[in-house]
Computed example of a mutant assay.
Amino acid sequence: MKVLEIRDLHISFKTDSGKVKAIRGVNLDLNKGETIAIVGESGSGKSVTTKAIMGILAGNGEIEKGSINYTWEQHESSEHGIIEGGTADIVKLSKEELQKNIRGRKIAMVFQDPMTSLNPTMNIGQQVMEPMLYNYNMDKKSAYEKALELLNLVGITDAKKRMKSYPHQLSGGMRQRIVIAIALSCDPYILICDEPTTALDVTIQAKILELIKDIQKKKNLSVIYITHDLGVVAKVADYVNVMYAGKIVETGKIDEIFYNPRHPYTWGLLSAMPDLDTDDSILYTIPGNPPNLAQEVVGDAFAPRNKFALNIDYRLEPPMFDVEGSNTHKVASWLMHPNAPKVDMPQELRKKIDKMLKEVNL
């Protein structure tokens, strides 16, 4: 069942430099129980897309066109009785409707820095209980009991003691677990994780990713990851959406993106991924800079940074082409056109992918 469907989403921001067209026609699907990842460089539009889903765009942001349809099934909840199914276009909802019916209740978000997400003046118990008290008018005793359950679920030891703690008294990993508990407090159906492990060390990062996967299975959640770390993507995602300059330029199953990438930008991202055999002196970087979206983008936005760019790339924006033999792998590049010259991925990347495939098949 499809729980989220984004179609032709365009978002702009009014700035002193003029109108910035941050999102330029995004299409995205999310099914029940599925994990999708949105990857790309900083400024590619990953966070803006998910903030639009949550209805928390900055005041100068505007959804110019497109739809964000969220669908939920009728089900019975032990705490909230029968919950009717339905569909809502988030773009058309007022701030009050979003706050009352969608944000927190149906779609929740985990941000990358728990210290900016948590209130330093409130203890942990109050912060985990607050959404339940606000959204469901739950009595304090029931909210307290459920908060304890949630702290145990996210792996907080000595939960009763931690309920009285303040954010500054906890480690970074524990604070991120608290943020996840708050996000889960109203039993959402979709969990958006915006760089949830960026501020954490590698060991804690792995534990948090495992925790989210574990909770997803228990609660049958649909999860959206936003990240620039392809290592994280490899561990968690079913499908990957590669974003560049406000558009999705390649989408497919995890194996299709990692082992059979077709867009030169995806080649660049994968080539820039270090591994144990990488020599620091030859670590690849994508040349150039992303375009200024305050100016009109003509043709393929990646063309000035793409050594394989064709003449048509500077004139016309490429449509999404289906990759032969797959109904899930799509690429927005003129190199996929039947009449385009055949271009192979860089040899160094081919070697890296062959090595990854060999390790997987061991």
Rank of each mutant, 00 (worst) to 15 (best):
S142R: 14
K247V: 08
T227E: 00
K2C: 02
N27S: 13
E348V: 15
Q347I: 14
I208K: 08
T328F: 08
F302E: 07
S12H: 14
V110I: 12
L93Q: 01
T227Q: 04
P287L: 08
Q127T: 09
I23L: 11
A37F: 06
K164T: 09
R105M: 05
I107R: 01
L349M: 09
H337F: 06
K65V: 08
E195R: 02
N220K: 13
I6T: 03
S17A: 14
I248V: 15
Q295K: 15
L133Q: 04
M138S: 14
K2G: 01
E97P: 05
A147I: 05
R350E: 12
P291V: 11
T278L: 01
V297D: 02
I56V: 15
I124P: 10
I312Q: 07
A309C: 10
K65N: 12
E62M: 13
R350Y: 11
I107C: 00
E41V: 04
R162Q: 15
D255S: 15
S333R: 02
W334G: 08
A340S: 12
M273D: 08
T71R: 11
P131Q: 04
Q127N: 01
T116K: 05
Q169K: 04
K161V: 13
K106S: 03
Y244Q: 02
Q216I: 00
L357H: 06
T203P: 09
N289F: 13
D187P: 06
E62K: 15
K106W: 03
R24F: 10
K330L: 02
I53S: 07
I254D: 10
I68L: 02
L98V: 11
D29G: 13
P346E: 14
G18K: 08
N135I: 04
D194E: 06
N220E: 14
S42T: 13
Q126W: 10
G246W: 10
I53C: 06
P290R: 10
A181M: 06
K140N: 13
T285C: 03
N327R: 06
L28M: 15
D201Y: 08
I254Y: 09
K92Y: 01
N69Y: 02
K141T: 11
I353P: 10
A37K: 09
V323I: 15
K46Y: 06
L30Y: 10
F308G: 08
G125D: 02
A147P: 09
N119L: 07
Q216E: 03
K141V: 12
N306I: 10
I83T: 01
V110C: 10
D113Q: 09
G268M: 02
L362D: 06
N260Y: 04
I102W: 08
L230K: 03
A245S: 14
L335I: 11
E64K: 09
Q99E: 13
C193T: 10
G86L: 12
D229E: 03
G43A: 11
D255Y: 10
I226R: 02
T116P: 03
H263V: 11
D229M: 04
M320Q: 15
N69V: 14
A52V: 05
I353D: 01
K19C: 08
F308V: 07
V223W: 02
E5T: 06
G33C: 06
N311T: 12
K355I: 09
V242F: 06
V110T: 03
L269Y: 07
K106G: 05
I257W: 00
K235T: 11
D8K: 05
D279M: 05
T197Y: 07
W334D: 05
P264I: 15
D322F: 04
K100Y: 01
I312A: 01
K352N: 04
L4Q: 06
T227F: 01
K160N: 14
I36T: 07
